[in-house]
Design a protein around this nucleic acid. Structure first.
Lengths: 248, 248
DNA sequence: CAAAGTCAAGAGCACTGCTCTCGATTCTTG
DNA sequence: CAAGAATCGAGAGCAGTGCTCTTGACTTTG
């Protein structure tokens, strides 16, 4: 989540690097990230070795430090990329179903995120698993991490606006939580009442709980058809999202 | 989860080791685990160093290998201990509230688990975060991991028996999932219908999603009063657990 | 064209997990 | 009770790691 600052306008994209040196530098930076990403994808973040990356690129280990000041910085770059990858997937799923009902859009969004997670389990673990040992998320990661959540929040706001999502007033919202919800509403969720934000956030964290349980093996020997199980669970979560039945 | 095998009866507890050598061995094994656990608690699993543990114990690093064949084995021992610690906490919470209603028991259970997680974040990450790099959960961890889930499943079975939990038939249970549910029912959840197991598992994974989001910083700058937020969310989850309102 | 900035390379430090060998101690067994 | 077997701590050593510093060659800039 960490939906705090609105996405800052890129200051100077500089898509066309001027000097030749800058061009090869950008290229090499990308190559290092690509190799590192592949290593992480294959063996996990803990096995990421600057020396191994350098070896594969045919350079000496100390040369890497010209491009990334430390292993953690390289890891941070990968984390940001992972956030953007999952956000892109989520946005694409939303774009394809934006004319459907909230339940269908929610299911598509959940399945898109799970699909990305299953295809890139180590990168998923990088951003939604335990924080990397000795690693504290720097400021640079909070903006990219907000993009995914924004997709969901917009879906919720949309559902409220269209009258598809109804508040569930069964649980009181404490004062302190209410003020957090006010801030959230003003920033990204206009028109979404507290009693929708509560269930929505529960469903949202539940999605990642379900994916993490599946990916990290906590459903091993319990659930075998993970696809069917996940879909059924997310359909149910969708019902929790849209709120109590309107039986009148 | 991994509720597969019923807890095996301890073959030979051997609580009173015979020889003096065996006694000091058991003692030293415990000391190594204690120091290692403290290191993990302070710096995370990635920073666990056999040499540092050995140093603190005044022995040489190679001596550790007389007690744990590898770093991963030491980590496995810590993982098992962590599972048992959280299970103990969960069982204690259940024992204290077993005469209350399902909603109250659920809330107490959720808060107990979250309390343990907040007190031992690195150990929580060890078992519910991403699997440790280069580490595959050995068979030894699945039995201890089942204990926590069993507390919850028994609570659910109890609620069904007492008529407090009602099935939510809004989402169809696929055939393959049904057969998993049948197995689960026969093993640990007698009398719990599919349409209760589904919501129950959703709530259960949601609990860990909520705790992970809080602990791993995904709610940073979004939620500030984590205690109040968690309680409200878990109360809502409790409503999802007990099933649809019975308004007739 | 020369000064300033940037680069890859190499050596080196402190650390890691792990293996092997070597005596010394302890347990088991005849 | 003593001999043989098992276990133990210590030490050296190997291959790997992140990271720093220096050196010499290169590119960009003024």
């Amino acid at each position: 989540m960490a939906i705090a600052a609105p996405p800052p306008a890129d200051p100077a994209p500089d898509n066309a690097p001027k000097t030749a040196r800058a061009r090869v530098r950008a290229e090499l930076t990308g190559e290092i990230k690509d190799v590192a990403r592949r290593h992480v994808a294959e063996a996990g973040s803990g096995s990421l070795s600057l020396r191994a990356v350098a070896r594969e690129l045919g350079m000496v280990s100390s040369a890497i430090y010209r491009y990334f000041p430390s292993r953690d910085d390289l890891l941070t770059a990968l984390i940001i990329d992972a956030y953007e990858a999952v956000a892109t997937v989520a946005e694409a799923a939303e774009a394809h179903t934006s004319r459907s009902g909230v339940a269908a859009r929610w299911l598509a969004l959940a399945q898109a995120i799970r699909g990305w997670a299953r295809a890139n389990p180590h990168e998923y673990a990088l951003i939604y698993g335990s924080p990397v040992p000795g690693y504290r998320a720097p400021q640079d990661t909070i903006a990219p991490s907000a993009r995914v959540s924004l997709v969901f929040i917009r879906l919720v706001a949309d559902g409220v606006e269209r009258g598809e999502i109804h508040p569930d007033p069964r649980v009181a919202i404490p004062r302190t939580v209410h003020s957090d919800f006010v801030a959230l509403r003003e920033l990204v969720a206009p028109g979404v009442p507290d009693h929708v934000l509560g269930p929505a956030l529960l469903v949202w964290t539940g999605l990642f709980g379900a994916i993490s349980f599946e990916l990290f093996g906590h459903l091993h020997n319990v659930i075998h058809d993970h696809d069917a199980f996940f879909e059924a669970q997310m359909r149910l979560a969708g019902h929790h999202l849209v709120g109590p039945d309107q039986r009148d």
